[in-house]
């Protein structure tokens, strides 16, 4: 009798312990939600302080961004233009090269080549961005200056190209996954009709993997938009409302870094302005991420 009641008590204790552990693990998992919430709350809170002083209309339409000047102007357009131009240059590099790499690795490359090259591409992803910044400023830009003697030392072209190379592994690995998910029977059908490898890849595999490939591009865009150090080092950190990639300019991210480098008093408008800029950045990447994930889900469900 005694033994049994002891065992029952032990069992109850065990159950409580199990529940407790499960709860602790749940809290750890909830930290992801807490982080997102904290990001949103902090950005909204500080940006709200900013928008008390600056109207939304001025923020969105003014073409000057000079928070450090005596007569400060707060128009996000120059920063937005800088961000879009560098992203555009990056995509002009990453989309064709990434897509060709993906088609090659998925449809053409011998097994051995793929196994050798993929770790290298992964390493490319692992290089710290500040090192890429050095590379853009002191290697790529001087090379570009050989072909374009008028190119200033700080410009958006060099960093844009480097960001493009940086996101190639990202674009190519997601597109490659999408292409490999295309069932073999489609390829076999195409070969049976007498198509070559190239015809099969371009006319059968690529259309079948289309939404996955688009997802890869969009995820690449969101990477490029959020890239900071390459542009902070090599694009000049000077807000400049231009669509010409040969000119120096600042992006949203570069502006945040530039302000954070100086010691800003907590609560000043310039301090709050980096949160407003950050909010714009988060909204931009959020839109791209959501579209990217929707597209990626679609290609997963296709077969």
């Amino acid at each position: 009798m005694d033994v049994r009641s002891n065992r029952l008590a032990e069992k109850r204790l065990r159950k409580i312990k199990e529940r407790l552990i499960e709860f602790v693990l749940f809290l750890a998992a909830l930290s992801a939600v807490a982080t997102t919430t904290a990001i949103v709350v902090i950005l909204l809170y500080e940006a709200a302080g900013f928008f008390e002083h600056v109207s939304l209309v001025e923020f969105l339409t003014n073409t000057q961004w000079t928070p450090m000047f005596e007569n400060p102007q707060y128009g996000i357009l120059p920063l937005l233009a800088g961000t879009l131009v560098t992203t555009g240059v990056a995509l002009a590099v990453a989309v064709p090269v990434g897509l060709i790499t993906a088609i090659y690795l998925s449809e053409f490359a011998p097994h051995k080549v793929r196994e050798t090259v993929k770790p290298f591409l992964e390493l490319l992803e692992g290089v710290p961005t500040v090192v890429y910044g050095y590379f853009a400023l002191l290697f790529v830009t001087p090379i570009l200056q050989i072909f374009m003697p008028d190119l200033p030392g700080f410009n958006m072209l060099g960093p844009g190209i480097v960001i493009g190379i940086m996101i190639i592994p990202y674009v190519s690995s997601v597109s490659e996954d999408a292409m490999r998910a295309v069932p073999m029977s489609l390829r076999e059908g195409s070969y049976a009709m007498g198509a070559t490898r190239f015809q099969t890849a371009v006319n059968v595999v690529l259309p079948a993997a289309f939404s996955g490939v688009m997802a890869a591009f969009i995820l690449g865009i969101s990477r490029a938009v959020g890239e900071t150090m390459v542009v902070a080092v090599a694009a000049g950190q000077q807000p400049n409302f231009t669509w010409d990639p040969r000119e120096p300019a600042a992006t949203i991210t570069a502006y945040i870094v530039q302000v954070a480098m100086g010691d800003l008093p907590h609560g000043s408008i310039a301090y709050q302005s980096i949160f407003a800029a950050g909010l714009v950045l988060v909204l931009m990447t959020l839109v791209f991420n959501v579209i990217g994930h929707l597209l990626r889900r679609r290609f997963r469900e296709a077969y």
Partner: peptide
């Protein structure tokens, strides 16, 4: 999934505020 796509500088802003 979404946090993996948030630009790293935004974590800096979170940390600065929090």
């Amino acid at each position: 999934t979404n946090l993996a796509g948030v630009p790293s500088i935004v974590y800096g802003l979170l940390a600065l505020g929090l």
